[in-house]
Amino acid sequence: MLNRRAVLASLAGAVSVALTSSACGKDSEGSSETRSEGGTVGIAMPTRSSERWLTDGKSVVENLKIQGYKTKLVYGDDDPKVQASQIEALVKQGVNALIIAAIDAKSLNGPLQQAADAKIPVISYDRLILGTENVDFYVSFDNEMVGRVQAHHIIKKLGLEDGEGPFNIELFAGSPDDNNTKYFYEGSMALLQPFLESKQLVVPSGQTRLEQMTTLRWDGPTAEKRMRSILAQWYGNRTVDAVLSPYDGISLGVISALNADGYGTDAKPLPVITGQDAELASIKSIIAGEQSQTVYKDVRELARTATEMVDDILSDRVPRVNNRSDYDNGVKNVPAHLLQPQNVDKANYDVLIQDGYYSVGELK
């Protein structure tokens, strides 16, 4: 890494020119114009269809500006091929570093080889990039803990540790091409599996394997369609008591399907439904007594961690990490810095106001 940084230092003056807004296809936020001596950082985010990724992109740009860097922020709009071409374009334009939240964790070998050939360091942001040695660091939340937080909420709300049950539960997972999906699943199932084995939890659909419950691109309408199918096939004379959902967008899709099936009334209340990312629509749903829970991950802090890491690398300092052994991408153990997630439900959602994540007005 230090050799790579030495090369970059010698190139800093040559690549400090701002990237134009027309480069790399669809983008937002543009380039900053402050203190050009910091160089330029390319930022590749996966989608603009999710509120959290808009917040991530904005936060990364703002933090890099403060540290004196120019930026080029692009969104792949859920298309792995578009994202790959965007990264290739950023490499050709001579960015000093790349921060990448991959759409497809296994689709970036070519662009990242180009980055390595150009001595450009790569930080894998939130989603671990797989199958390449050309990723230098990983910043994320403790994703297995996210799954545990969701599972613990279900266990607590249903009283499973007090022997209550049996209850009917359906299981949803994230996108099959996102490595985080595996960690969320493993974390949640580590806690739920004993109750499945004891029959306190029953999955009427029988869909308990990860490949049966994934939701491509974390898409809410896709989750809604699957939930409607499950209800039609397996719940003619049954009631859903809980739904393990890994992400707020999926949760809202599930709620839509349940509402269409008559849930959400005093006679047929909604089940316990988990979520993740504390998106505004889901926080409002929690306040309204619909979605039960979400996992709050302050992505502003994640952005700060990533930008501090970039600054360390480009300043020839050793970046701070707290996990060197648990994130094997199939080629290497990627040094990681992990942040901790937090449970949010109707009892404590005001933490989002206290942290300045949302205002009181936004939650009305």
Rank of each mutant, 00 (worst) to 15 (best):
M1H: 04
N3S: 11
A9L: 11
A9I: 06
A9W: 10
S10Y: 11
L11R: 15
L11D: 09
V15P: 02
S21I: 03
S22L: 03
D27E: 02
S31G: 14
M45C: 02
S49D: 13
R52A: 00
R52W: 06
T55A: 08
D56C: 10
K58P: 09
K58T: 15
K58W: 10
V60T: 10
N63V: 00
K65D: 09
Q67W: 01
Y69H: 07
K70P: 00
K70E: 08
K70S: 14
L73Y: 11
Y75L: 15
G76Q: 10
K81V: 12
Q83F: 08
A84T: 14
A84K: 11
S85T: 14
I87D: 10
I87L: 11
E88R: 13
V91S: 08
V91G: 06
K92C: 06
K92F: 11
V95S: 09
N96Y: 08
N96P: 07
A97F: 04
I99T: 01
I103D: 10
I103H: 12
A105N: 09
G110F: 11
L112C: 06
L112T: 08
Q113A: 14
Q114S: 14
A115H: 05
K119N: 14
K119Q: 10
P121M: 05
R127H: 04
G131R: 14
T132A: 05
F137D: 01
V139A: 08
N143G: 00
M145R: 10
M145F: 01
M145E: 12
V146Y: 04
V149E: 02
A151I: 04
I154V: 12
I155L: 07
I155W: 04
E161P: 09
G163A: 12
E164C: 15
G174F: 09
P176E: 05
N179Q: 13
N180F: 11
K182V: 12
K182A: 15
Y183I: 04
E186S: 14
G187I: 04
M189C: 13
L192M: 04
F195A: 00
L196W: 07
S198R: 00
Q200H: 07
L201I: 05
V202E: 02
V202Q: 10
V203D: 00
S205M: 12
G206H: 08
T208A: 04
L210V: 01
L216C: 06
L216Q: 15
D219N: 15
E224A: 13
M227S: 11
I230E: 08
L231D: 01
W234G: 10
Y235V: 02
N237F: 00
T239M: 03
Y247I: 03
Y247W: 02
D248I: 01
I250T: 02
I255N: 02
N259T: 13
A267I: 09
L270D: 02
V272F: 03
A278R: 04
Q291Y: 06
S292V: 00
Q293G: 09
Y296I: 13
K297G: 07
L302S: 01
M309I: 04
D311S: 12
D312M: 05
I313S: 05
L314G: 01
D316R: 10
P319Q: 15
P319I: 13
N323A: 06
R324D: 14
S325Q: 15
G330C: 03
P335T: 02
V344N: 02
V344G: 06
K346E: 05
A347D: 14
Y349F: 08
I353E: 04
Y358I: 00
